[in-house]
Amino acid sequence: MKVMIRKTATGHSAYVAKKDLEELIVEMENPALWGGKVTLANGWQLELPAMAADTPLPITVEARKL
């Protein structure tokens, strides 16, 4: 699914347009965010693609819901 990742004042957030859902990312498998699992505030887990740590945000990526 397409997910937009952006930086907020409190960390990172994910927006899933198909579900009209925006949630804070509360847990990251990798400190650089990319190439691992993230957990959203509502409990969803997404697998993000591997990208460079300095990838500019906001960005829309293809993520997989676990």
Results as ranks from 00 to 15, higher is better:
Trp34Phe: 10
Thr10Trp: 13
Trp34Leu: 04
Gln45Gly: 03
Gln45Leu: 12
Gly11Asn: 03
Thr10Ile: 12
Leu57Gly: 02
Val16Trp: 15
Lys37Glu: 05
Thr8Cys: 09
Gly43Cys: 06
Ala9Lys: 12
Ala9Phe: 09
Thr55Lys: 04
Leu21Cys: 14
Asn42Ile: 06
Thr39Gly: 02
Lys37Leu: 12
Arg64Ile: 14
Pro31Arg: 08
Met51Val: 05
Leu40Val: 00
Leu24Gln: 13
Glu22Lys: 05
Thr55Phe: 04
Ala32Trp: 15
Ala52Val: 07
Ala9Met: 10
Lys65Tyr: 15
Lys7Arg: 12
Tyr15Trp: 11
Lys7Cys: 08
Pro56Leu: 10
Asn42Pro: 00
Pro56Ala: 11
Met28Val: 08
Ile59Ala: 12
Glu22Asn: 09
Glu22Trp: 13
Lys19Trp: 15
Gly36His: 02
His12Leu: 14
Thr8Arg: 08
Ala41Ser: 11
Arg64Met: 11
Ala17Ile: 15
Lys7Met: 10
Glu23His: 13
Gly43Ala: 03
Val16Glu: 02
Asn42Glu: 02
Gly11Pro: 00
Ala41Thr: 06
Ala52Cys: 07
Ile25Leu: 05
Glu62Trp: 15
Asp20Pro: 05
Met1Phe: 14
Lys18His: 15
Met28Thr: 11
Lys2Ile: 14
Lys19His: 15
Lys37Ala: 08
Ala63Gly: 06
Ala9Thr: 11
Ala9Arg: 11
Leu46Ala: 01
Glu62Met: 15
Asp20Glu: 11
Gln45Thr: 13
Lys37Gln: 08
Val38Ser: 03
Asp20Ala: 11
Val61Pro: 00
Glu23Gln: 12
Met51Lys: 06
Lys18Gln: 15
Lys65Asp: 12
Leu24Tyr: 09
Thr10Cys: 14
Leu57Gln: 02
Leu48Val: 03
Arg64Tyr: 12
Val61Phe: 06
Ala63Trp: 04
Thr39Leu: 10
Lys2Ala: 12
Ile25Val: 07
Ala53Pro: 13
Trp44Leu: 07
Lys7Ser: 08
Pro58Asn: 02
Met1Val: 13
Thr60Phe: 11
Lys37Phe: 11
Met51Pro: 01
Glu22Met: 09
Ala17Pro: 14
Leu48Asn: 00
Thr60Pro: 02
Lys2Gln: 14
Ala14Thr: 05
Leu24Glu: 14
Glu22Cys: 13
Glu27Pro: 00
Leu57Tyr: 08
Pro31Ser: 09
Ala53Lys: 10
Ala63Ser: 06
Met28Ile: 08
Thr10Tyr: 13
Met51Arg: 05
Val38Asp: 01
His12Arg: 07
Val3Trp: 01
Met1Ser: 04
Ala50Leu: 12
His12Gln: 05
Gly36Thr: 04
Gly36Asp: 01
Gly35Asp: 06
Glu29Asp: 10
Met4Arg: 12
Lys65Leu: 15
Lys19Cys: 15
Glu29His: 04
Trp34Ser: 01
Ala52Thr: 08
Ala52Glu: 11
Ile25Asp: 01
Trp44Gln: 02
Ala17Thr: 11
Asp54Phe: 06
Ala9Ser: 12
Arg64Ala: 08
Trp34Lys: 00
Val16Lys: 01
Glu22Leu: 12
Arg6Met: 11
Lys18Asp: 15
Leu48Ser: 00
Gln45Ser: 09
Gln45His: 09
Ala50Asp: 12
His12Trp: 15
Ala14Tyr: 11
Asn30Trp: 08
Ile59Gln: 10
Glu22Ala: 08
Pro58Trp: 07
Glu62Gln: 12
Ala17Arg: 09
Asp20Ile: 07
Lys18Gly: 15
Ala41Val: 03
Asp20Gly: 14
Asp54Cys: 05
Lys2Phe: 13
Trp34Thr: 03
Pro56Tyr: 07
Trp44Pro: 01
Leu24Gly: 08
Thr60Trp: 15
Ala17Glu: 14
Ile59Glu: 01
Gln45Glu: 12
Met28Cys: 11
Ala32Thr: 14
Gly11Gln: 05
Lys2Cys: 14
Leu66Ser: 08
Glu47Asp: 09
Asn42Ser: 08
Glu29Lys: 04
Met51His: 03
Leu40Cys: 04
Lys19Gln: 15
Lys19Glu: 15
Val38Phe: 04
Ile5Tyr: 01
Lys19Tyr: 15
Ala14His: 05
Glu23Leu: 15
Ile59Arg: 06
Gly35Met: 03
Ile25Cys: 02
Ala17Gln: 13
Pro31Met: 08
Ala63Asp: 00
Val26Thr: 10
Asn30Asp: 07
Gln45Phe: 08
Glu29Pro: 01
Val38Asn: 02
Ile5Gly: 00
Ala14Gly: 04
Leu57Ala: 02
Asn42Ala: 00
Leu48Cys: 00
Glu47Ser: 10
Val3Tyr: 00
Ile25Pro: 01
Val26Gln: 03
Leu57Arg: 02
Thr8Ala: 08
Ala52Trp: 05
Ala63Val: 13
Ala53Ile: 11
Thr60Lys: 04
Leu66Ile: 14
Pro58Lys: 03
Ile25Met: 01
Ile59Gly: 00
Tyr15Arg: 09
Ala50Asn: 12
Met4Glu: 15
Pro58Gly: 03
Val3Ile: 11
Glu62Tyr: 15
Lys19Ser: 15
Thr39Asp: 00
Leu46Pro: 01
Val26Phe: 04
Arg64Asp: 04
Pro56Gln: 11
Ala32Ile: 10
Leu48Met: 09
Gly43Gln: 04
Glu47Thr: 10
Ala32Lys: 13
Thr60Ala: 07
Thr39Pro: 00
Lys37Asp: 03
Pro49Met: 05
Lys18Arg: 12
Leu40Tyr: 01
Pro31Ala: 11
Thr39Ile: 11
Ser13Arg: 08
Glu47Trp: 14
Pro58Val: 04
Asp54Trp: 07
Val61Thr: 05
Lys7Tyr: 09
Gly11Lys: 01
Arg6His: 08
Trp34Glu: 01
Pro58His: 03
Leu24Trp: 08
Arg64Phe: 12
Pro56Asp: 08
Leu33Lys: 02
Met4Tyr: 08
Ala14Asp: 00
Val38Trp: 04
Glu47Tyr: 13
Glu29Arg: 04
Met28Phe: 11
Leu66Gly: 04
Ile25Trp: 02
His12Asp: 02
Leu40Glu: 00
Lys18Ile: 15
Pro56Cys: 07
Glu27His: 13
Gln45Cys: 12
Thr10Asp: 12
Leu40Phe: 04
Asn30Pro: 02
Val38Lys: 01
Leu33Thr: 03
Thr55Ser: 05
Leu46Ile: 11
Glu62Asn: 13
Lys65Pro: 11
Ile59Asn: 03
Met28Lys: 11
Tyr15Met: 08
Glu27Phe: 13
Glu27Val: 09
Ala63Lys: 01
Pro49Ala: 03
Gly36Cys: 04
Thr55Ala: 06
Leu48Tyr: 02
Thr8Ile: 09
Lys7Trp: 09
Lys18Cys: 15
Gly35Gln: 05
Arg6Lys: 14
Thr8Phe: 06
Ala53Gln: 10
Leu46Gln: 00
Ala50Thr: 10
Pro49Glu: 05
Thr8Asp: 07
Gly36Tyr: 06
Val3Met: 03
Val3Cys: 05
Leu33Met: 14
Glu27Ala: 13
Gly11Arg: 03
Leu57Trp: 07
Leu24Ala: 14
Gly35Arg: 02
Ala14Ser: 01
Trp34Val: 04
Met4Asp: 07
Ala17Val: 15
Val26His: 05
Val3His: 00
Ala32Cys: 11
Gly35Val: 03
Leu21Phe: 14
Ala17Asn: 08
Met4Phe: 07
Leu24Lys: 12
Glu23Gly: 05
Lys18Glu: 15
Pro58Ser: 02
Lys19Thr: 14
Arg64Gly: 05
Gly35Asn: 06
Arg6Thr: 10
Leu46Arg: 00
Arg64Val: 13
Ala17Phe: 15
Leu57Glu: 02
Glu23Thr: 13
Ala32Tyr: 14
Gly11Glu: 02
Glu27Leu: 09
Ala53His: 12
Thr10Gln: 13
Val61Ile: 10
Ser13Gly: 06
Ile5Pro: 01
Ala17Lys: 10
Tyr15Lys: 09
Thr10Phe: 14
Asp20Asn: 13
Met4Gln: 14
Glu29Cys: 06
Val38Glu: 02
Leu33Gln: 02
Leu48Thr: 00
Ala14Ile: 15
Leu48Lys: 00
Leu46Asn: 00
Val16Ser: 06
Gly43Trp: 03
Met1Cys: 14
Asp20Thr: 07
Leu46Thr: 00
Ala63Ile: 08
Thr55Pro: 06
Lys18Ser: 15
Glu27Asn: 10
Thr39Tyr: 08
Ile59Ser: 02
Gly36Val: 06
Glu62Thr: 14
Leu57Asn: 02
Leu48Gly: 01
Leu21Tyr: 08
Arg6Ser: 13
Val26Glu: 06
Gly35Ile: 04
Tyr15Asp: 01
Gln45Tyr: 08
Glu23Asp: 06
Leu66Phe: 11
Pro58Thr: 05
Met4Thr: 15
Leu33Gly: 05
Leu21Gln: 10
Lys65Met: 15
Leu66Lys: 05
Glu29Ser: 09
Trp44Val: 06
Lys19Ala: 15
Thr55Glu: 02
Lys37Thr: 12
Trp34Cys: 02
Pro58Ile: 06
Asn30Gly: 06
Leu21Ser: 08
Glu27Trp: 15
Leu24Ile: 13
Pro56Lys: 12
Glu27Gln: 12
Leu24Pro: 13
Ser13His: 09
Ile5Glu: 00
Met51Ser: 04
Ala63Pro: 04
Ala53Leu: 10
Ile59Met: 10
Trp44Arg: 00
Thr8His: 09
Ser13Trp: 15
Met1Tyr: 12
Gly35His: 02
Pro49Cys: 06
Ala52Lys: 10
Lys18Ala: 15
Asp54Lys: 07
Ala50Trp: 15
Ala9Tyr: 08
Ala53Arg: 10
Gly11Ala: 06
Leu21Asn: 07
Val61Ala: 02
Val38Arg: 01
Tyr15Phe: 11
